[in-house]
Amino acid sequence: MSDTTTQTFNNATEAATSAGAADTKAGEAATSATNAATSATTASTMAAAAGSAVGLPAFAGKARHVLAVNAAEDGVQFDEVTQIVEEFYEFTDSGTWTVPTGAFGIYVEAIGGGGGGVNSDRATKTGGGGGEFVAMRLEVSTLPGTLAVTIGAGGASISTRNTDGNDGGDTSLGSLVVARGGRGGSGGVAAGYTHERGNGGGGEPAGRLVGGLSLPAGGGFSSGGGGSDGSAYPTNGGSCSKGGAGGGAGGSTGGVSQDGGDGGDGSVDSAASNGSVPGGGGGTVASSSGEYASGAGAAGRLRIWVARLEAI
């Protein structure tokens, strides 16, 4: 083959190769265009689906919010970021209490009013009983928006001789929490008779005479009973942990309470002591002349602790 013929053959081969490469590039470009069109269609489809999703909120203007599944579990919603806040309320006077917004836990403690001591010249007489202590957790979902608060008054002192003491009043939060008042002291209890006068609001017994033996007043957790005067064997008021303590008999000391009010001291021919707030029973006065007053019981108290959620 001549040199001219060889050169012509080589040129034709290179031209064919270049044409094949051009066809390949064109195919790749067409494929890229197809892929781009497919991606755009997919993105458009996803955007349309997202825009029509149930419960999907707007993303603008939602600082201090978190994205959460809604209650129906068919979409999402923005919820406020919250913190737990603890609040405390104490009532020493009657009124009303409004349940705070966002409350989820409520704990209540109540103490009834203490009973007043008796004014007597008899050998058997008792101090006023201490007010009862009651504690309770409340279910928030069952509460009305506002509840009445009643603080039990202490039994008033007695200036008239041979007159029983006045009962203490009940402390309450609506009808849900009720702490009973202590019973007023008694000045006319026969020997051997177990009486209710002078009992603590929680039922703790007052001191009493049984067969000539003077038994001490009861006391414990809730409240204390008033002391009893068996002439030569007067007893102190009952002590307790949480409620009001009982008032002492004539010449005896009142009971002691760890968290509530102490009972008033009893006296002979001098004014008896009042019980201490909250719920302490009044002391007895033993007087032949009747010119001295018995001790008054102390008013009760209501305390409320609340845990609630508050937006940050």
Results as ranks from 00 to 15, higher is better:
residue 96 T to P: 00
residue 106 I to R: 02
residue 100 P to G: 04
residue 135 A to Y: 04
residue 69 V to D: 10
residue 89 Y to V: 06
residue 101 T to V: 13
residue 19 A to L: 10
residue 64 R to Q: 15
residue 119 N to K: 02
residue 44 S to E: 05
residue 120 S to A: 15
residue 156 A to N: 12
residue 119 N to G: 11
residue 112 G to S: 10
residue 80 E to Y: 07
residue 122 R to V: 04
residue 60 A to M: 07
residue 120 S to W: 06
residue 67 L to W: 07
residue 108 V to F: 08
residue 151 I to V: 10
residue 79 D to Q: 14
residue 135 A to R: 06
residue 165 G to S: 10
residue 27 G to E: 06
residue 35 N to G: 06
residue 110 A to H: 00
residue 46 M to I: 13
residue 145 G to N: 10
residue 155 G to H: 08
residue 121 D to C: 08
residue 137 R to S: 14
residue 135 A to H: 07
residue 81 V to P: 01
residue 103 A to G: 02
residue 58 A to G: 15
residue 78 F to T: 09
residue 85 V to K: 13
residue 94 S to F: 01
residue 124 T to F: 11
residue 33 A to C: 00
residue 63 A to K: 11
residue 52 S to G: 12
residue 55 G to M: 04
residue 120 S to Q: 11
residue 134 V to I: 14
residue 149 V to R: 01
residue 23 D to Y: 07
residue 123 A to H: 05
residue 20 G to C: 01
residue 78 F to W: 15
residue 76 V to P: 00
residue 127 G to N: 09
residue 104 F to C: 03
residue 82 T to V: 10
residue 99 V to T: 12
residue 48 A to F: 02
residue 114 G to I: 00
residue 93 D to R: 08
residue 142 T to M: 11
residue 25 K to T: 15
residue 62 K to D: 04
residue 41 T to S: 15
residue 51 G to A: 13
residue 137 R to Q: 14
residue 156 A to L: 09
residue 84 I to G: 06
residue 159 S to M: 04
residue 71 A to C: 01
residue 23 D to S: 15
residue 82 T to E: 10
residue 156 A to E: 11
residue 35 N to F: 08
residue 87 E to A: 11
residue 94 S to Y: 01
residue 35 N to Y: 06
residue 120 S to K: 05
